[in-house]
Design a protein around this nucleic acid. Sequence first.
DNA 1: CTGTTAAAGATTGGATCCATCATGACTGTG
DNA 2: CACAGTCATGATGGATCCAATCTTTAACAG
Lengths: 228, 228
Amino acid sequence: MDTSSPASSSALVDETAAAIRARIMSGEIPIGAQLRQAELAKALGVSRTPVREALRQLQTGGLIEVVPNRGAVVRVPAPWEVREAYEVRAELEGLSCVRAVRRITRDGFEELRATNELLRPGDGPPNAASHAANDRFHTLIHEISGNDRLARVIKEINEAFPRNVSALVLQEHPRHRDDNFAEHERILAALEAQDDELARREMQSHVISAGEQLARWYERRSATVFRG
Amino acid sequence: MDTSSPASSSALVDETAAAIRARIMSGEIPIGAQLRQAELAKALGVSRTPVREALRQLQTGGLIEVVPNRGAVVRVPAPWEVREAYEVRAELEGLSCVRAVRRITRDGFEELRATNELLRPGDGPPNAASHAANDRFHTLIHEISGNDRLARVIKEINEAFPRNVSALVLQEHPRHRDDNFAEHERILAALEAQDDELARREMQSHVISAGEQLARWYERRSATVFRG
DNA sequence: CTGTTAAAGATTGGATCCATCATGACTGTG
DNA sequence: CACAGTCATGATGGATCCAATCTTTAACAG
């Protein structure tokens, strides 16, 4: 069904790539860590060959960095990189909203609303489920927008940065959670009002502020690291 | 110096990937052709290993398609894919212009103008040089915009489609060349007037129409193929 | 005690080997 | 004569082997 994603080449490489990506995203493999091929191969129960190709795949995505004869490390994103990337992402998600306004159905709208309800403040602390719901909210809009390429590019930008930190951001700044929910509500309102330009602006500022939070988290993080 | 691009992993794979990509882009390897690893390895004077990894890299970019145990083929882009991709590209190049308005210097502007002069109609038929100048015009704006991620995403979209066809489009429709030059001139005017929103609109419509030409070319092409 | 150099260990990158899978042809049977 | 099944051929994918390079450590000299 997923005709857009480039037809999974050989299952194994993609599986290993996904596995490694998941471990990086979840923080199990921390930012800046060395990725030794032999280790990964043993941990995943495959030989080094698929690991090598998987690493190259991840490198293309920008999640890891591979230096010629010294192996791969999980990239440490600089705050300015996050701001750059999120500026692009904001533009794209804005476009996604514009398109969604034209194509959204009643069912789609209700699903969006239901998804955002899972994020309503007061339903317990942020956790993996609310984080998934947050992702789902954005993904749903991309699906509604009906432009596969657009969705893919946004996803790609998203996956260039370890995402577990988003959860951390939410945990460290409970206020952000309220903001997040409220901003989603404003996007929903714009979509319901069929106001494409408003939807674009709301989504853009929402994404920019999310990027700002992420960038600040990286700033604090690197400050901590350098001080020991 | 190119700190943005993901630090060339191991020279060989990237070289072979670039070599294969170049052959596809130039049309030497035609659209839809099978890519046999052994053949490519012999042609490029390397073993199959770097070829395999290079193919995977190209697959991630979307230029080729790899089906599990049957090898790789150069993807045959559907016209709707081109339109989708160019809608995204238009949005991004529009953003690039907005940023460029704020950051452009006199030197940068002169370089842009000089580059576009190479495209002025009447200086002989379209050729590889004018095609390169056309690319350069856009790339310059991306550089001026100062957002590496933005430039990379645009480049990536660009490289997902065999580009030689652009030259073919120009050759088949001489009128397009005039349009191309004139549209560039209007973008230049907007940049000089520091009118960011105008620059955005001009660039967007320019890219959209370029995408439309490309999509039409693919349409004609597939019609030809199916009939003959 | 410190800095430099050399050697050993470890890790990546390229090449080769082998198993698996798909395709196509050929043969036998209905 | 047509269709189905089997076998052979060729190509991909995974594993392993070997060489080259980098890092680290230790020893030696200043």
